[in-house]
Simulated scan of single mutants.
Amino acid sequence: MLHGHGDDGYQYEQEIVANFSSNVWFGGKSDKLKEHLFSNWDKIHSYPEAAAESLVSAISADLNINTNQIITTNGATEAFYLIAQTFYKSKSSIVIPTFSEYEDACKVNKHELLYLNWLSKEYKFEEGLVWICNPNNPTGDILSKSDLEILLKSNVKSTFVVDEAYIDFTDAISSAIDLLDVCPNLILVKSLTKNFSIPGLRLGYLIANRAMVQNIQFFKPPWTVNSIAIEAGKFLLREKTDFLPPVNYYKSETKKFIKKLEKIPGFKIHPSKTSFFLVELEENTAFELKKYLISNFGILIRDAANFRGLNSSYFRLATQTEEKNQLLIDALIQWSKLNS
Results as ranks from 00 to 15, higher is better:
102 Y>P: 09
57 S>H: 12
79 A>M: 09
67 T>Y: 00
97 P>I: 02
107 K>W: 05
59 I>F: 06
113 L>Y: 03
96 I>Q: 04
91 K>H: 10
91 K>P: 08
87 F>I: 01
101 E>H: 13
98 T>N: 13
96 I>V: 11
91 K>M: 08
74 N>C: 12
84 A>F: 08
89 K>W: 05
100 S>M: 12
68 N>E: 13
82 L>G: 09
102 Y>F: 15
77 T>K: 10
59 I>P: 01
66 N>I: 03
77 T>H: 10
106 C>A: 15
66 N>G: 14
90 S>V: 00
67 T>S: 14
101 E>W: 12
56 V>K: 15
77 T>L: 14
90 S>I: 01
104 D>K: 12
108 V>C: 08
91 K>A: 09
98 T>V: 02
94 I>G: 04
64 N>L: 07
66 N>V: 02
113 L>E: 02
96 I>N: 04
63 L>M: 11
107 K>M: 08
62 D>H: 15
108 V>H: 14
98 T>W: 08
95 V>Q: 04
86 T>K: 07
63 L>P: 03
70 I>C: 06
72 T>M: 11
114 L>E: 13
85 Q>M: 10
61 A>V: 03
93 S>T: 11
69 Q>S: 08
77 T>V: 14
113 L>M: 08
59 I>H: 08
88 Y>W: 13
64 N>Y: 09
74 N>L: 12
85 Q>V: 01
106 C>M: 06
91 K>R: 12
91 K>F: 04
86 T>Q: 09
75 G>M: 06
66 N>F: 11
96 I>F: 04
107 K>C: 03
112 E>G: 07
98 T>S: 12
109 N>V: 00
58 A>Q: 12
101 E>A: 08
82 L>I: 00
85 Q>C: 05
59 I>G: 07
72 T>Q: 06
76 A>W: 05
75 G>P: 07
106 C>F: 07
107 K>H: 07
57 S>C: 10
57 S>P: 01
85 Q>K: 15
78 E>H: 11
105 A>T: 02
94 I>C: 03
88 Y>F: 11
104 D>C: 10
112 E>H: 12
67 T>H: 09
73 T>V: 07
88 Y>C: 02
